[in-house]
Design a binder for these strands. Sequence first.
DNA 1: CGTTATGTTGAGCTCTCTCAAGCTTGGTGG
DNA 2: CCACCAAGCTTGAGAGAGCTCAACATAACG
Lengths: 247, 247
Amino acid sequence: MSQHDLKLNDLTCGTCPIRHRAVCARCEADELEQLGAIKYYRSYQAGQPVIWSGDQMEFVASVVTGIATLTQTMEDGRRQMVGLLLPSDFMGRPGRANAAYDVTATTDLVICCFRKKPFEALMASTPHIGQRLLEMTLDELDAAREWMLLLGRKTAREKIASLLAIIARRNASLRLTEDGAARFDLPLTREQMADYLGLTLETVSRQISALKREGVIALEGKRHIMVPDLDRLLAETGDDSDGGMPS
Amino acid sequence: MSQHDLKLNDLTCGTCPIRHRAVCARCEADELEQLGAIKYYRSYQAGQPVIWSGDQMEFVASVVTGIATLTQTMEDGRRQMVGLLLPSDFMGRPGRANAAYDVTATTDLVICCFRKKPFEALMASTPHIGQRLLEMTLDELDAAREWMLLLGRKTAREKIASLLAIIARRNASLRLTEDGAARFDLPLTREQMADYLGLTLETVSRQISALKREGVIALEGKRHIMVPDLDRLLAETGDDSDGGMPS
DNA sequence: CGTTATGTTGAGCTCTCTCAAGCTTGGTGG
DNA sequence: CCACCAAGCTTGAGAGAGCTCAACATAACG
């Protein structure tokens, strides 16, 4: 624990791994200093809750390392993941007192918190923060809409392939070997994948087995995926083959 | 047509029905004047396309009157609605050259367009616009996430009930009669409802018939809905009975 | 009137869910 | 060191919700 705290205390904006992608990306040195005055780090172990829906939130935060999930739960227990927070993603909403979703650390997690009131004040006085937050929120909205297409119209197999493709695409530990193969770790359990995709965990398991049986992917252990041919995986997602033309 | 243009030309910010809810809500008189210099109105008839995904967009816009839909289409024709634009909602994204979704007018539609380049410049110089846009985008993100729960986890019956409840809640022409009954027009065809809910149009039709048969709703024509007991409808949505506590 | 767009209803099928059993892996305590 | 246990995962069998295909109904419109 003391060792852990030590690591937290080593963090500074100067060495921060998300310095240029997070909500503070556009900030100048003086603005960063103002942010620094209201920030503090927190860490959570894999599996721990960060906040429950309805709880009062006294902070907003950026994910520094690790992965967290946003989930909604219905009265009878049905659950749907509505967000996946990766390093540099923002959690919480300025101007809102209570959390709207359950937030859970799915891996060990470090977040950079800003006390909400002073953060809101800073947003009003330094446009760079609000500008960046708008940009990030628009990106999230686009991601949510792509996800809606997945939830509403894709088959179980397409859903699995899409999720694997998303993780492969934005996983930092992804390594492309010489021949176009990719390897990565799944950061989610089968149940979490099911909550993400609007499926049951059994269907997730069966579809993964099917993709494995057909050679689209290979498993090394339960959580490590090897994709021999990324194009073949992408062909299973149901998405356009040409990923949209550059603007 | 000339009569139509006449009506468009009558529009001014001073009499604009969405003046206090749209992206210009927070603007002062001088800011409004700057916006006014780069704005122009357009109108579309029900059913007409406003823009196709991938098209270059030379403007962003606010919906003034009428309803438009945002939809995504897969190669094989499967479609999913990802947004429903009501008066005051914003379309387009500053900083993006091409449209990401198909936009279609589902009723007669009037939008207030801002030329994109000057709008982006204005956003940089007048914080009020960006602030309001951030607020609206965060609201849309919340709506998208609630919609994800619907798409991923609700039954066909719950989906229909939820859609009716949403329309009932925010339809301006909603009238509550003395005894708690509500009446409103459906702005969508059965097929559009299906695209919204991730269902087929046949399933939509069947579920509406079922709700009618059981007295949860009554139809007056195909498009006019009467809800004798709103609470009964809400109970069918699967959502929390208490609509969340005020913060 | 025919024509077209929209909506309803039926019959059968399929994909995904539910329920259930069993497997693997890692950790814990005797 | 082994036995046990729990969490995560896989697989099977049967059921059911929603889809597909098809026929028909209704209404608006030329």
